[in-house]
Design a protein around this nucleic acid. Structure first.
Lengths: 147, 147
DNA sequence: TATCAACAGTTGAGGCCGCAACTAAATTAT
DNA sequence: ATAATTTAGTTGCGGCCTCAACTGTTGATA
């Protein structure tokens, strides 16, 4: 087994473990993991379009249509027509959306402190730098063909 | 933003980028990512039960029922009754399953070499050690409550 | 031995997700 | 100015996934 395969498998298993915990945590706020991430992104960048959001979430735009419609039906998000582009929407959090986002985010931050306390502060910084480099490298390869 | 939140977000984005590429790669073998991982695990541990496989894949056992039935219908997997436990199944690859597994695995290994060539060999070893520690720490917390 | 709890696997319901095909608006080219 | 191309968003389809409820088997206990 090569080193790169080991790293790949570790990253995959770590993600599944993190995601499994996230599902339980966000479920307590009537949110799926994806629904939470929409609230999170809209808090960071209010007025973003569906297309921009699907790029941030690395998913198909049709998925954003359905998730934001569901969040709108639950009163957490509004979808406004764009003021100059008749094709686009602007997505915003409602007051209730802001509130739910804040509560879920606080829980999630505390949960992450608990889950990553395995590392010392120095190790966290070193790992963060390595992962950032990897992410940027992968992002640059997004539209390349597999070997 | 805390360090642990940064690490969490990097891991999540990296997984989404890896998974997106995997989906395209395995699609060329008529496999979803999950279907490939079943072939992979059954090659490593032939005769494993559905329950053991769902533990390895960190997913619900009902998901294994449906995926293995689909793979059986496609002639890649067989589901045999367990010789001493009337409740359990033993899962095996067929000859065609072995063949497809080998071809897809070779492509995936080469693809991983390409994707992770960002790191030097020394960096790969260091990252691998850090991730292994994190995975084991998270695994130990699997049934703890979120803070 | 008779009962009861634990366990392997299945099914139905419902949410998530990508892909392909589509509509309508904006941009570019002629 | 008009036509061709690109872009934002939606919808139908089908695969993936968890959860809860269920069947049937095994193992522990009284």
């Amino acid at each position: 087994m090569s080193e790169t395969a080991d790293i790949y498998n570790l990253l995959k298993d770590i993600f599944f473990l993190l995601d499994d915990g996230d599902r339980r945590l966000f479920g307590g706020y009537n949110l799926s993991v994806s629904r939470f991430y929409i609230l999170w992104h809209l808090g960071n960048e209010p007025g973003i379009s569906s297309r921009q959001l699907s790029d941030l979430m690395i998913c198909d735009k049709s998925n954003i249509t359905r998730l934001t419609k569901g969040l709108e039906a639950d009163g957490l998000v509004t979808r406004q027509p764009h003021e100059s582009d008749g094709r686009a929407l602007r997505l915003y959090l409602t007051a209730e959306g802001e509130f739910v986002r804040q509560k879920a985010l606080e829980s999630h931050l505390a949960y992450n402190e608990q889950r990553f306390n395995y590392f010392s502060i120095n190790e966290q910084q070193s790992l963060q730098e390595q992962l950032l480099g990897l992410k940027e490298s992968l992002f640059g390869q997004l539209y390349e063909q597999p070997a």
